[in-house]
Simulated scan of single mutants.
Amino acid sequence: MILEAVILQVKQGMEEEYEEAFREASKIISSMKGYIFHELQRCMEVRGKYLLLVKWESLEDHTIGFRQSIEYQDWKKQLHHFYDPFPAVEHFENVPL
């Protein structure tokens, strides 16, 4: 299992519209193979800043299964115009303790 983590900066004044669009786009990501869970957190200190966390069964479920899918084109169309700058996506794996 891997964790995708993304800091998102939404253009000023578009926060409410973004959150509504994200709710709608959530149906896309949650239907994908290998998807486990996702959440969107709003930053309390910086207006328009969000943290997206998505758990996937494998890295490939995200990078190939989702990012190279037709569904991703819808996701992109619904959400990417809100971001400035465009976010960097990082992947993490659990450290056994």
Score class of each variant (00 low, 15 high):
Met1Thr: 09
Ile2Ala: 04
Ile2Arg: 03
Leu3Trp: 06
Glu4Asn: 01
Glu4Ala: 02
Val6Trp: 02
Val6Asn: 04
Ile7Arg: 15
Ile7Pro: 10
Leu8His: 07
Leu8Pro: 06
Leu8Gly: 04
Gln9Arg: 13
Val10Pro: 01
Val10Phe: 01
Lys11Met: 09
Lys11Pro: 08
Gln12Ser: 15
Gly13Trp: 13
Gly13Arg: 15
Met14His: 00
Met14Arg: 04
Met14Ile: 05
Glu15Met: 07
Glu16Val: 06
Glu17Phe: 02
Glu17Tyr: 00
Glu17Asn: 05
Tyr18Met: 07
Tyr18Asn: 08
Glu20Ile: 01
Glu20Ser: 02
Ala21Gly: 02
Phe22Thr: 03
Arg23Ala: 12
Arg23Phe: 09
Glu24Pro: 02
Ala25Gln: 06
Ala25Arg: 02
Ala25Val: 07
Ser26Asn: 06
Lys27Gly: 15
Lys27Leu: 15
Ile28Gly: 03
Ile28Ala: 08
Ile28His: 05
Ile29Ala: 05
Ser30Leu: 07
Ser30Arg: 12
Ser30Ala: 13
Lys33Gly: 10
Lys33Val: 14
Gly34Lys: 04
Gly34His: 00
Ile36Phe: 04
His38Asp: 03
Glu39Pro: 01
Glu39His: 03
Glu39Trp: 00
Leu40Cys: 07
Leu40Asn: 04
Leu40Thr: 05
Gln41Gly: 10
Gln41Cys: 13
Arg42Val: 11
Arg42Pro: 06
Arg42Leu: 11
Arg42Phe: 08
Glu45Ser: 10
Val46His: 12
Val46Trp: 11
Val46Ile: 15
Arg47Gly: 07
Gly48Tyr: 05
Lys49Leu: 14
Tyr50His: 08
Val54Met: 01
Trp56Ser: 00
Trp56Thr: 01
Ser58Ile: 15
Ser58Leu: 13
Leu59Val: 14
Glu60Gly: 09
Glu60Asp: 13
Ile64Asn: 05
Ile64Val: 13
Ile64Thr: 10
Gly65Ala: 12
Gly65Asn: 08
Gly65Arg: 07
Phe66Thr: 01
Phe66Met: 06
Arg67Asn: 00
Arg67Gly: 00
Gln68Ile: 12
Ser69Val: 11
Ser69His: 10
Ser69Thr: 11
Ile70Phe: 04
Ile70Arg: 07
Glu71Trp: 08
Glu71Cys: 09
Glu71Val: 06
Tyr72Lys: 00
Gln73Met: 07
Gln73His: 09
Trp75Thr: 06
Trp75Asp: 03
Lys76Glu: 09
Lys77Val: 01
Lys77Thr: 06
Leu79Phe: 03
Leu79Thr: 01
Leu79Gly: 00
His80Asn: 10
His81Gly: 11
His81Val: 10
Phe82Trp: 10
Phe82Cys: 11
Tyr83Lys: 08
Asp84Ser: 15
Asp84His: 15
Phe86Thr: 11
Ala88Ile: 15
Ala88Val: 13
Val89Ser: 02
Val89Arg: 01
Glu90Cys: 09
His91Lys: 06
His91Gly: 07
Phe92Cys: 10
Phe92Arg: 06
Phe92Ala: 09
Glu93Asp: 12
Asn94Ser: 13
